[in-house]
Amino acid sequence: MVTAWATLKRNWLVTRRAYPWSYFIGTLGPGIFTVVVALLSYRAIGGGRVSAWFGASSGTSDYLGYVTVGAAALMFTTRMVLWVAKAQITEQREGTLESQMLTPAMRLPYLLGVAAQAFITSILELCCLLGTALLLGVRLPVPDPVSFAAAILAAFVAVFGLSIPISAIMISAGEAHITQNTLFCVVGLLCGFTFPAALLPAPLTFLGELLPATAAMRVLRAATLHAAPIQQVTGDLLICLALGCLYAAVGLLVLPHAERRAITRGASA
C-alpha cells in the first residue's frame, strides 16, 4: 500500500497546485443544468406533480430528488473516470509513463492511490452540486447511514472497476476524448442516472445491467430517497461489487499489454 499512499499524496499535491477548473466546470455545469431543467419542467410543465408511470417505473414520486441524486451520481462517475481512466494516458503525455513502468510498483495500488485522491476531490465537488440543489429548493430525506455508506462504497467500486479497462483502451488507442465521451454517453443513457432505465427498450436495459454503475445507481437511490436499510439493497450491492471487481480484473489483465503498446507506438514512431 506504499505505492497507493505515495500516489495519493503525489496527486493531492499536484491537484492542490494546479486544480483542473475546466474539468470541474465541465462536469458541475451539466449537473446543475440537469437539476435546473428538471426543476423548471417539474414546476412549469408538470405543475409540481409526476405521472403515475414515472412513479411506477422509478419507485418514487419525488422527481426532483430522483433527478438530483442521478445528476450527482453522474457527476461522481464522470469525475472519477476523468481522474482514474485518464491517469495512465496523462502519465504518457507528461512523459512519466516510462519512469512509472520502470519501477517494480504494481498497477492496482497505483490506481487505488489515484482513485482515493479522486474520491476525496469528487466528494468535495459533489457538495457544491448538492448545495446548489438545496438552494434551488430540492429537499432530500435523511438516508440510512449504513446503506448510504455501502452505496458510496458500491459506487466507488463500480466506477473504479469501469475506469481500468477504459484506461487500457485510452492508452492503447493513444487518445482520451472519444473514449471518455463515448463512455459518458453510454452510461448516461443506459445506467438510469436521470430517468428510469426501465423506460429503455429491453436490449438496452440488458446492456445497462452489464455496467456496474446501473446497480450502483439503484443502491444509491434506495439509500438516499427511500432510506432503505442495508438488507433491502444487499442484492444490488453484491451485483455492483461483483461487476466492479470483474471489470477491474479484466482491466488489470489488459493494462500491461496496453502500456507496452503505447511504448511500442512511441518507439516505432
Partner: peptide, 9 residues
C-alpha cells in the same frame, strides 16, 4: 531530454 519527472512536484 528533461522528461521522466513530474513537473508540478
Amino acid at each position: 531530454g528533461e522528461r521522466m519527472v513530474y513537473t508540478r512536484l
